[in-house]
């Protein structure tokens, strides 16, 4: 789940228009860029889609960290293709946000100066090759739970980009699990890496769903607008229930002594992550928060001359074409 803690905006529009808008959403209509929409709907969506896009772009970095060290040619190609997909997903999402009247450059600027956030998960380091497995298995697994229902979200361009993203992502989680299987069934050192990766990524993965709904004041409005499709706790529970048997299959231990099957609710009881750590990470105090933004800032600054030069060349070409006519 790449959008966390999205503050939804109150709206002060004409009540009649608001009612008609809500009726369209309730009827399952898609809202399109030129349609009337409440200012709060627009602002909330920009924040949510923007944060989702930023998460894809920053999310390239922890996995990109291992592309040059992938242990076989095939693993290198797979990982590169996957991280490349993330750039593509960021691109689709920025374009969706742009239909709401905000430019990609503006969104980038807001990421770099801290006004916009990215998912907390990408502020954690990737320390061994098994982390490539854990990120695919757990992080993409958690993201998919959120993204699949978003294919039915009320905003047309967002829904369509999610359709494309979900289609492309279908191999991401599987490649992660495939790495985990190799590691968990490998040498002693590989097994140790696999368990270590699970230990480090378990709680940060649970944080991806955001704090408990009971504490989230914004969920309700967003759910009415159909830009948030499920509650945080509901998705987290689903994630745990799905992941525990997979860990058992791998012969790995989930780092939670309280984890137990609860017959009554038909799901696992599990320990909550340390939410104070989560809020620290969101404030920019994650283990890699500074490096992540530094890397994006450097790419942005170093690329400025290229972006300008391409524009200048296109302008000259256009002028020459006009002169020739």
């Amino acid at each position: 789940m790449y959008a966390q803690m999205i503050k939804s905006e109150a709206t002060q529009d004409d009540p009649e228009k608001l009612a008609a808008f809500q009726a369209r959403i309730d009827a399952g209509d898609k809202i399109e860029p030129k349609d009337w929409m409440p200012a709060g709907y627009r602002k909330t969506l920009i924040r949510q889609i923007g944060q989702h896009a930023h998460s894809e772009i920053v999310g390239q970095l922890p996995e990109g960290n291992w592309i040059t060290r992938a242990p076989t040619l095939e693993r290198k190609a797979i990982l590169l293709a996957k991280v490349q997909d993330e750039a593509g997903h960021g691109l689709y999402l920025y374009c969706a946000a742009e239909t709401l009247g905000v430019s990609r450059d503006k969104l980038t600027e807001m990421l770099l100066d801290g006004r916009m956030k990215y998912s907390s998960i990408f502020s954690y380091p990737t320390l061994t090759w098994a982390d490539m497995g854990a990120v695919g298995w757990l992080v993409d697994g958690a993201a998919i739970m959120n993204q699949v229902p978003l294919q039915r979200t009320s905003y047309g361009p967002y829904a369509r980009s999610m359709v494309r993203i979900c289609k492309e992502e279908s191999f991401h989680q599987r490649q992660g699990f495939d790495i985990m299987m190799k590691m968990a069934n490998g040498t002693e050192a590989q097994k140790r890496m696999a368990q270590d990766a699970l230990n480090r990524f378990w709680y940060p993965s649970l944080m991806m769903f955001g704090p408990s709904d009971a504490e989230s004041v914004h969920s309700e409005q967003s759910m009415r607008w159909r830009i948030k499709m499920n509650g945080n706790d509901e998705l987290r529970q689903k994630f745990v229930d799905q992941t525990v048997p997979q860990a058992e299959y791998l012969g790995l231990t989930i780092p939670d002594e309280t984890l137990a099957w609860n017959e009554e609710k038909g799901g696992y009881d599990f320990a909550q992550p340390d939410w104070s750590e989560f809020f620290d990470v969101l404030k920019g105090n994650g283990p890699c928060s500074v490096e992540r933004i530094e890397a994006r800032q450097k790419a942005w600054d170093d690329g400025a001359w290229v972006r300008e030069a391409r524009l200048a060349h296109a302008a000259k070409k256009q002028a020459a074409k006009v002169a020739a006519e």
Partner: peptide, 22 residues
């Protein structure tokens, strides 16, 4: 080329470099 992944001047260029590397 794969060293560029995530660091190129624009998303479109990032994706293009990765295609060449692949």
């Amino acid at each position: 080329l794969s060293e560029w992944c995530g660091h190129a001047p624009a998303l479109e260029e990032d994706i293009a470099l990765a295609n060449m590397a692949l």
